[in-house]
């Protein structure tokens, strides 16, 4: 499973990079979202994969060794998801304004506009 997940993460990153290299600003945002998905998954897998129902402290747990599901990466991912959401929302608004102001979604026009 880890191998398969690793390949999936790799593919998600590849999709993100490919989209980031497009000239369209909409695709740029999609690329960023791919990146944040892939990174969340990467942290999750790095913390170790263990199937089963979520564990609670009230079940009498005292150490991770007894409960294989590590809570720490989960907490990190939670934070990452929320921040990622904030960035995406901001980026969407930015893109909307960008299109309104310039009338183009081509990022290369930014450079050409500078030379004018």
């Amino acid at each position: 499973m880890e191998v398969l997940l690793a390949i999936v993460i790799g593919l998600l990153y590849a999709a993100g990079v490919y989209l980031l290299l497009r000239r369209s600003i909409v695709k740029l945002i999609l690329g960023i979202m791919f990146f944040s998905h892939a990174t969340n998954l990467l942290i999750f897998v790095a913390g170790g994969l263990h199937k089963g129902k979520p564990q609670f402290a009230s079940d009498g747990l005292t150490a991770v060794s007894a409960n294989p599901t590590d809570p720490l990466p989960q907490a990190l991912i939670l934070t990452a998801i929320v921040i990622g959401f904030g960035i995406t929302a901001f980026f969407l608004a930015l893109m909307y304004r960008f299109y309104q102001a310039t009338g183009t979604e081509d990022l290369d026009e930014l450079k050409e506009g500078e030379n004018k």
Partner: peptide, 26 residues
């Protein structure tokens, strides 16, 4: 880039993480 990330995940899987930090929270 993608293939590198795949390699990185595989490498990360066999790292010996220090469980003490997580143990403290648990």
């Amino acid at each position: 880039v993608g293939s590198f990330m795949t390699g990185l995940v595989l490498k990360a899987g066999q790292l010996n993480l220090n469980p003490k930090i997580s143990d403290f929270y648990v």
